[in-house]
Design a protein around this nucleic acid. Structure first.
Lengths: 335, 335
DNA sequence: TTGAAAGCGCTACCAC
DNA sequence: GTGGTAGCGCTTTCAA
């Protein structure tokens, strides 16, 4: 059986209170006793039960992270940032892939509550904001990452998606593109909405317009994007400049173009979003709008932990700036 | 404050024992009572404390997953497979990125023990096998993923790395390459050792040899690989066929070749390992040895859970077969 | 069918 | 300095 605090106490001939003190470095224990007890814990390979400690009022030192899909490089990179910061601060993180399904989000949320995590970070889309309110009522710290839920009063760390969309548009416009289109993530994703809004504003600012057919909705994955892209590029009057709402979709676009015998960027320019590792390894390397992923993750953790130690701070909204990274998937408009 | 089982009991006018029964669907409770209690739990948004339940002997329904770096697509894909299977079986998973540092592994191992996870999956290299033995003594279920620790008696699900190396070599040889080289992960990584062994055997089988200079050690990341590769390709008598121990390294190799003005595969053929998402988006798409990542993750979870319910099963060793996936980064030897 | 009560391993408060 | 002890929220006999 696993050693308990009682085993240590008995072996050391002291009370469990004393053992508890040395574990937590609290109270006044003579150096001699402390050393003795430590030695015994070492020898018995004693691992104090965080479970029991948590029941007594301590934190669980565990955080939850909800993302659509941890195997997507963007979220994997985000998870790494979150994990790193959490580790530095003494927390572990439970990963939850939701596939953007509310039902899954809800189940995970309940699960994490039952496990009494100290806080949750949400980097996944949620259709019905209502499913978050139980958390807030229970005043469980929540931080949204790269998502917005204006109706809710929660911590948020996000990027300026609108600016990101504008950067993409300006770049395409500068390269002389006038027949442009957008490959969007599902419209319910607020960040995509904003990106498109910024994109549209920049486009309209130069007197062009963005008709409904120029905005195609697609799932966030490569294959869905490729499929939609094949349709988009098959138009008689096909666009020469395409803005994709994430890098994975941009790759789908790249592949679709290739499949149709179109050259990138000579025949069609493609610009992505996120600047994940993927963007630097594609053929050609992807021009993309870079998110400060590491900052996003780190700040989300910080917001959570801050709230944990210093209750009643009003929810913070942090907005970071995206940056355009020009590589080789965009070029001067050909026609 | 959060509702407890007492709150529910009081509200329903029953004992906590009864509430416990309905939560767990155990014992005999009249349909009427059960419905009443359920209704109240619902209304109070009661979330039973898994912490408290675990203290009473139940499992924590949490597993630990140690990998070198969750932001590496290979491990991200593995994590997804692990998470999916875990969810299906009612478990959550805590992600731990170790950067292949023993010190970090050890700290995480202790941490996970303190949190009383039900089992751990280890997909990270460990220099000193000894740091695992405390776990085994405490008979905590452990499963190694794509790693071997022959000295330890633990569950293992891995691929036949030797065969993988051989497949790579045979492919290069068939394309007529004779000046070949290997870009290895740190030699301490057992899977790389095996891959190289298989590679060497296949090479020697046709009367060629593999000298020390033809095997370059590098960290597993892109930039380290690129740096080593620049050296390797700068030799007067540079190799025309290169086997990299993972896709990320192969991409580093690709970039190095590009930087030196070498064409792939005309001037140099490059073959990777893993078949992550990266392999399909590079320029050119990567020929690589594919691992059945999803099976690896799923089976690791299954082994753990099996042991959990049916103690004393002897440690299983599952070995899956890799497969060569030919894309466009390899071609006929030019010289 | 339901309830009383004994823990699970630990923390924290209060005596000594 | 150190120890006794009352919980924390739940599960699980054992009685009723």
């Amino acid at each position: 059986m696993k050693a308990t605090i009682y085993d240590i106490a008995r072996e050391a001939g002291v009370s469990i209170a004393t053992v508890s003190q040395v574990i937590n470095g609290k109270g006044k224990i003579s150096e001699k006793r402390r050393a003795e007890v430590m030695e015994i814990m070492e020898r018995l390979n004693y691992q104090p039960s965080a479970i029991a400690a948590a029941l007594t009022g301590k934190q669980t030192y565990t955080l939850g992270l909800l993302v659509p899909d941890i195997s997507n490089p963007y979220f994997a990179e985000l998870a790494r940032a979150v994990e790193d910061r959490s580790r530095q601060l003494g927390y572990s993180v439970v990963i939850c892939s939701t596939d953007n399904k509310d039902e899954r989000v809800e189940r995970y949320l309940n699960l994490l509550q039952q496990k009494r995590v100290d806080g949750m970070m949400i980097g996944t889309g949620i259709d019905n904001a209502e499913i978050l309110s139980p958390l807030l009522q229970q005043s469980i710290p929540v931080a949204l990452i790269a998502r917005h839920m204006p109706s809710l009063s929660v911590h948020t760390v996000a990027i300026d998606d609108r600016l990101g969309g504008a950067l993409a548009a300006q770049h395409l416009l500068e390269m002389g593109h006038t027949r442009i289109a957008v490959l969007s993530e599902p419209f319910k994703v607020s960040s995509s909405q904003e990106r498109i809004r910024g994109f549209r504003e920049a486009v309209e600012a130069v007197g062009l317009s963005l008709e409904p057919w120029q905005i195609r909705e697609s799932a966030a994955d490569l294959n869905s994007a490729k499929k939609e892209m094949l349709v988009l590029l098959d138009e008689a009057n096909r666009p020469t400049g395409i803005f994709c709402c994430n890098d994975m979709q941009a790759i789908g676009a790249l592949q679709a173009a290739k499949e149709l015998g179109l050259r990138v960027p000579e025949d069609v320019s493609i610009i992505g979003f996120d600047n994940t590792i993927l963007a630097s390894v594609t053929n050609p390397p992807l021009t993309t709008v870079a998110q400060p992923i590491e900052d996003l993750g780190r700040l989300a953790v910080d917001l959570l932990i801050d709230e944990l130690k210093d209750d009643r701070k009003p929810p913070q909204k942090i907005v970071l700036k995206p940056e355009l990274v020009i590589r080789e998937s965009t070029g001067v408009a050909s026609v």
